[in-house]
Structure formats: structure tokens, C-alpha cells
């Protein structure tokens, strides 16, 4: 096993542990936005899509690059936008109270 692979494996494992630690603290109320946000985060595969398209030089490669870029961009943009939209709906108690008192 090369030193680089070992280093990457360490990063992977530590990131996994950080993930368990951080996400374990997210309340059930926010689980849908959480899933949608992590969904958007895996849209970082867009970076991989760019790397693929950058070395493309045959028609098949170009077709592949196009599909990967489209998939990844849809994932990342849609994921973040819908998460933001959902989180915007979660109202703090004070706002709801003032709204109720207005009626």
C-alpha cells in the first residue's frame, strides 16, 4: 500500500468519524433538511466531473463529460437551493407569536 493511499484512507476514516460526531447532534426536526444538505454536499462530485472533462479527447469521453457535468450540477445546485428553501420555512417561536398576536 502506497503512502498516498494510506494518507487518503486516514482522511476518509477521520472524516467518517467527524461525520458521525457532528450529524449525531442534529435534531430530528431537521432531518429532512439535513439529508437534503448532505445530498447537496455529495454534489461536490462536480469537481470530479470537471477533472473528467478536462482530460477528455474522444467523442465518447465528451459525451461522458457532458452527462457527468449535468448530473453533478443538478445535484449540487438543486440540493442547496431546496435545502435553503426548506430551512427558510422553519420559524423561530418569537416570529410565530408576533404573527399570532397580529390576528
Amino acid at each position: 500500500m502506497s503512502a498516498e493511499l494510506l494518507a487518503t484512507l486516514s482522511i476518509f476514516l477521520l472524516a467518517l468519524l467527524v461525520g458521525f460526531e457532528v450529524i449525531g447532534k442534529v435534531p430530528a426536526t431537521l432531518h429532512t433538511p439535513l439529508m437534503s444538505a448532505t445530498n447537496a454536499i455529495h454534489g461536490v462530485i462536480l469537481v470530479g466531473a470537471m477533472l473528467v472533462a478536462s482530460v477528455a479527447d474522444t467523442a465518447a469521453d465528451y459525451a461522458l463529460g457532458f452527462v457527468v457535468a449535468a448530473f453533478a450540477a443538478m445535484n449540487v445546485v438543486g440540493g442547496y437551493v431546496v435545502t435553503d428553501r426548506m430551512l427558510g420555512m422553519f420559524q423561530p417561536p418569537s416570529k410565530a407569536v408576533s404573527e399570532a398576536s397580529k390576528r
Binding site: A15, L16, G19, G48
Partner: peptide
């Protein structure tokens, strides 16, 4: 995919999503 392209941000982001 991060392992394949030797790209740390893919590895970290993927691991976070996997944990979640």
C-alpha cells in the same frame, strides 16, 4: 471517486454524507 481521482475534498465530503 475521491480515491480514484486522488482528491481530498471528494473523500471528505463523501465520508460526511456516508456517515449522515
Amino acid at each position: 471517486a475521491g480515491f480514484v481521482t486522488d482528491n481530498s475534498v471528494l473523500v471528505v465530503a463523501g465520508a460526511l454524507v456516508g456517515a449522515s
